[in-house]
Simulated assay, not measured.
Amino acid sequence: MSDSPPPPADPGSVDLQALEAAILSGDPARSMPALVALRDLPAERAVPLLLRGLEQSAFIVRSLSCAGLGVKQTEAGWTALVEAVRHDEDANVRAEAANALVSYGLARAWPVVLEAFRADSQWLLRCSVLSAVAEHPEAQPADLLELAELALADADDTVRVGGTEILGRLAQQGGSAGADAADAGVVERARTLLRGLQQDADHRVVAAALNGLQG
């Protein structure tokens, strides 16, 4: 007897009215499963309901809606995520919106998430941007250096650790076979900053700096 999971539901059999009613119910216990159920629907059917989720008062519902819009990608979803990362009142939602925007491609999202990082001092948003961008295959060394230096100027040590870790990745690129000579200045700047951070007051920053220099 097979233990394999059942196949996903036929999108044509999904009761969209019931899902919408649950999303608009004002009860996160009903709204959240309905939003999760949208993953089995094509974007043209899921996105209108995800956009309704973004209008709800519970931040967890708006946050989950942002995550869904990062998966079900449309121009309407992109526009809503940009609005959310700039203006939503809850940092959890702004952080999830930033992460979802990067899912559309870093080349497109970079100006928006960099703007958000500069304008929004909330540590959760900043950590989300750092995490989404740090190892993204489209990330450019000069952009990563700019982001890391902004992070190092933050008052929150968790954000500063994230910036230090990015510097470590940049420093280690200098020894890779694929390193671009044009990025040599970025690598050297990263190493210089890491050497200075070995005397930082926060032991986590020091540890990240040492790790970056030794890698």
Rank of each mutant, 00 (worst) to 15 (best):
S2V: 07
P8R: 14
P8F: 14
A9L: 14
P11T: 02
A21E: 13
L24G: 12
D27Y: 06
P28S: 08
P28R: 02
R30G: 07
R30N: 13
R30I: 08
S31R: 02
M32D: 09
M32S: 13
A34Y: 00
A34K: 00
L35S: 02
V36T: 10
P42L: 04
P42N: 03
E44S: 14
R45C: 04
R45L: 15
V47L: 09
P48M: 08
L49T: 04
L49D: 04
L51P: 10
L54T: 02
E55G: 04
Q56L: 01
A58F: 03
F59K: 08
F59D: 11
V61N: 02
V61I: 01
S63C: 06
L64W: 11
L64F: 10
S65L: 08
C66V: 07
A67W: 14
G68F: 00
G70T: 00
E75V: 02
A76R: 15
G77Q: 00
W78T: 03
W78C: 05
A80I: 02
A80L: 03
L81M: 07
R86N: 13
H87Q: 13
V93W: 01
A95C: 12
A95G: 10
E96M: 14
E96Q: 13
A98N: 09
A100N: 04
L101H: 06
S103P: 00
L106A: 05
A107F: 12
A109H: 02
A109K: 01
W110F: 13
W110S: 01
W110G: 02
L114M: 10
E115Y: 05
Q122D: 15
W123M: 10
W123L: 12
L124V: 15
C127A: 07
A132S: 14
V133A: 08
A139M: 10
Q140R: 15
P141W: 08
D143S: 14
L144P: 03
L145Q: 00
A148I: 01
L152W: 06
A155H: 12
A155V: 13
D156T: 08
T158D: 12
R160W: 04
V161K: 02
V161M: 09
G162V: 08
G162D: 10
G163K: 05
T164Y: 00
T164M: 00
I166A: 10
L167E: 05
G168A: 08
G168F: 00
L170Y: 12
L170N: 11
Q173W: 15
G175C: 09
G178Y: 06
G178H: 06
D180W: 13
A182H: 15
A182Q: 15
A182E: 15
D183P: 06
D183N: 10
D183H: 11
A184V: 07
A184W: 10
G185F: 09
E188W: 02
R191S: 08
R191M: 01
R191V: 01
R191W: 06
L194W: 07
R195N: 09
R195C: 05
G196M: 12
G196C: 11
L197K: 03
L197M: 09
Q199E: 15
H203Y: 08
R204W: 12
A208C: 11
A208N: 09
A209H: 03
A209P: 06
L210H: 14
N211E: 11
Q214G: 05
Q214N: 12
